[in-house]
Each structure stands twice: as C-alpha cells, then as structure tokens.
Nucleic acid binder design. Structure first.
Lengths: 263, 263
DNA sequence: ACTGGTATACATGTATCCAAGTATTGAGAT
DNA sequence: ATCTCAATACTTGGATACATGTATACCAGT
C-alpha cells in the first residue's frame, strides 16, 4: 500500500513550473513577491460573474501546475493582482477548497493543495470504477458512428502530440473519456469523474514523461479496437490497464525525484 | 428511460413536511412568511465557524426534507432568522449550491433544489458503481470481526425501526454502507458516495413507505450472509439488488402521487 | 548563547453598504 | 375588459471596514 506522503514540487521532468517562493524556508508566506501569482492574467469584463472568472483562472493555473503545490494563495494578493474586491475572490477560493485544490486554514493562510498519494488512490479508484461501469454500458450500444468519432479524437490527439502541444494533449485526452460517458447519456456521472480526475491530472501533468504521451494514444486505440470487435471484456481490460498506468508513473520516478518526497 | 421531470412535493406518504408557501401559486417568493424557515433553529456560539453551522443546519433540513423542494431560500430571511450577517449565510448557500441541494439564480432568488429523476439516475449509477467496487475489495479481506460488527449495526437498525425512530433508521443505514468502505480503507471514496447519495436520500426520505424499512434490514442481512459464506458474486448481487430498489420506489408511486409530477 | 514574553504584520471570518437585475403591482390608455 | 408601462419591492453580486486569531521578529532577562 502507498504511504501517506506529500510531494513537494521543485521541477517536473517535462514541464517548467512557477516556483512557490521556497515555501519550506521562507518565513513570511506573502512577501512583496506573490510566488507565481503575478504571472496569472485576469481579463476584466468577460462573460460570467467575477467570482466565476477568478475561479476559472485559479483552477486552470492549479490543475495545469503553473502554480506549484504549496504555493500560498492570499485573498488580498489575488484581489490586488486582479483588481477586484475580496468578496468574489473569497467565493472562488471557497469553491477551490471544496474541489480539493486549495487548503485553507483560518487566520493562517490558504495554499495550493499538495499532491498527496492518498488522494491519488481515491481519485484512481473512483475514476476507475465509474469509467469501467460506463464502458460496460457503451459496449452494449456500440455503433460504427461511435467508433468513427472516437478514432477521430485519437487522430486529433496524435496531431497535437506531433505539434508538441502539451495542453492540447490533455484537452484531447479529456475529450476521449468524456465522449464515452456522453454516448450512454451519463453526463452527470462524467462530472463526478471530472471532479475525481483533477487530482490525477495534476499529478500527471507534473510527472508524466514525454514518451508517455504516445503510449496513451496506443492504449486509447486498444480500447476502441476491442469495442469494434465486440469484446467487452477485452475493452474493460484495456481501459483498466490504461487508467492503472498513472500509478506506474509513480513507480518510474527516479531516485532523485523520490528523494524530494518528505517522509 | 426515465423522463426529465421535477417532483413538486406536497406531502410524503410517511412523513410530514413543512410546506413551501405555495410555491407554484404565490407570486411573491418571500412574504412575511418565510415558508418553513422559521422552524429552523440555530444555536449561536457553538463550535465551528458561523458559515459552517449555517450550512449544517440548512443541509440537514434539506436532506431530511423538512424544507420542501422548491422552497425559497433568501439570504436575508436566513440571516434575520439566525441573527447573523449575510456573509456567512452566503458562503453556506454557495456550498449547498455546489452540493446540488440549492439552486441559485442571480437577482431572482435561491430555492431548495427539486427532486429530479435525472439526478436520481446519476446518483444511483455513481453510488452503485462505487459501492460494488468497494464490496469486491471487502470480500477479499472479509473477517469474522467485520461480520460481527456489521451484524451489530443491523441489530441497531432493527432497534431504531422498532422504536419508530425514522431519523435513526437513516443514520444506521449510513453507518452500514460507510463501514464497508472503511474496512478497505476507502474513506475518500466514501465521501464521494456520500455526495452522490444525498440525492437518493432526499428522494427516499420523501417517498419511502414504512414497510420498506424492514425490507432494507433483510437486504443488508443478505449481503453479510453472502460475505460470510465467501460468495463474493452473491454479495454483489445482493447489494446491487438492495441499491436498485430505490428505483422501484418510483414505480410504486400511486396514481395520485404521480399526478403531482409536472410534465 | 539561550529562553520567554511581547509587538507587529499578516491571514481569514464577519458585518454592512452599495450596485444592478428581476418580478410583481397598479395605474392609465386603448 | 385588456394591454402597456412605470414604480416598487424584492433578490443576489460586489466592495469595503472591522474583528479575531496566528506566526514571525524582536528584545529583555537569565
């Protein structure tokens, strides 16, 4: 079983990321430097409420690991940065807190949630159970049109990999899994999957090695292949394998990377 | 497939409930009468933040269907009622909104979320998938101690039924399912189940006929029986059957009850 | 050198005020 | 009688001021 550890991020193998201002060393959480926050951009006047937009900007930054785990998130620094009042910022942070993306401790501060192996276990379990259940339903109503659509998504994903578009890769990946859910009318279930997925996505974005991207492509293809041949069991096996790989990423960590893990 | 309908509650078969002030007829949402809110009690000075406590009180009232679906929830009426400012009430309602228990439309009002069959479908699917997956794990590590503990819970549940303690029944029911999750160290997954369950719980609390309670008891027993004999497949079948019954509650609705459904 | 108490700067939580949008109401015109 | 439209009374969203708790920095006493 995996230990309960928190991963302190310094640098990902494939991606650069904005560093938290030495969270462990620096005494004062919020100095003149806001630790990566200043790189965030907030378009005033766009659609939606201010709180929604603030939430969206912060969420994207956290999920895409542009804001490192542990980074202090001060309501004041955010509302200075975005030129809005504390009220919508507070609402946004509250939402992020409920999504498990931000830890807020009263009178102390709020911080980007660390990458916890525990959370990864739960996230994996939930996602796996739900996606397999969905796949079972989809297998029962599989059509050629569906197959064609899924293959198109895979091709799109191949293209963005070729172009070196990392963000695009993750978007297409989400499309793949999302579409399977909508095939059997389980949009509500997809929302639950999406909620559980963020934990894995953050982990993945941080640790995934570039060579992994092509493997994902093949694994997606294997699922569709099995569905095309009408072998539901094989499809489940393939999808299960695909989802389990995230754990293997943990196993692949180099010694140096492992050494960054506290306790 | 079930249609997308909203259930407007007038009175449950087994329970009395505070009526919304004729939501469909009354023009003004918030009159001098706040539609059931006045029955809610808020203990000042207890532990936790004000926002947390407000959230807890409202959540319990909604889940236990003491506040009827469709009841207007005005921030002002709440903070008058509880003698607190709007800010923590706002935070509480935002949380409830994210939990799907309250629908808030800007500049119009917030309302206790209606009972949607759609939501029930998703809720059922999620709960079923996750609980079955957990049961599969538990079956692999089943011990006599676990069996004894579960049987004790069932006995407790029998006692509260005997005593006519409806709230106690639902608490014990939650204990039963919760304990299974903790046996295999899936507390995080239980939280997800709990989130999905509220939709079903509200439905159940509203429609469940008294004779159903004893059936639940037998079904719980059947699951444990199967686990004791080491028949994992039978256990899954029994649990699946148990969870599916909620849909049957919908089928059992009398014609008069059905007529209350709009569209 | 080290320990202990205090001052200060920061955080989030709460209260209140203002802005902007929606739905009902009721009067007046058709 | 019916329709149009302005006034009004609500709502939630946002901005700001204040309350309260925490952690560091600093300094005095040992």
């Amino acid at each position: 079983m995996y230990p309960s550890i928190e991963i302190k991020c310094d640098a990902g193998p494939g991606f650069d990321l904005v560093r938290a201002t030495d969270v462990s060393e620096e005494a004062r959480p919020f100095g003149p430097d806001t630790g990566g926050l200043e790189a965030l951009r907030f378009d005033p006047g766009r659609g939606g409420s201010v709180a929604d937009r603030v939430h969206g900007v912060l969420r994207a930054a956290i999920v895409e690991v542009r804001l490192a785990p542990g980074t202090p998130i001060s309501e004041n620094s955010i509302c200075r940065q975005f030129s809005v009042s504390r009220t919508p910022v507070r609402a946004a942070i509250q939402r992020l807190s409920e999504e498990g993306l931000v830890d807020v401790s009263p009178q102390r501060g709020s911080f980007v949630a660390p990458l916890r192996i525990d959370g990864l276990r739960d996230s994996h379990f939930i996602r796996r159970s739900l996606e397999l259940a969905i796949l079972r339903e989809v297998a029962g109503i599989w059509t050629e049109e569906m197959s064609a659509e899924m293959r198109a998504i895979i091709e799109d994903q191949a293209r963005v990999i070729e172009a070196g578009n990392h963000d695009g890769f993750f978007e297409e990946d989400e499309r793949f899994h999302h579409r399977l859910a909508t095939f059997c009318g389980r949009d509500g279930v997809w929302e639950a999957i999406r909620g559980a997925k963020v934990t894995m996505t953050r982990f993945y974005r941080y640790w995934a090695h570039p060579e992994r991207l092509a493997e994902v492509l093949r694994e997606h293809g294997a699922v569709i292949d099995a569905l095309d041949t009408g072998d539901a069991q094989e499809a489940e096996r393939a999808l299960s394998l695909h989802l389990d790989v995230v754990f293997n990423v943990f196993d692949r960590m180099s010694e140096e990377e492992r050494r960054n893990l506290p306790a």
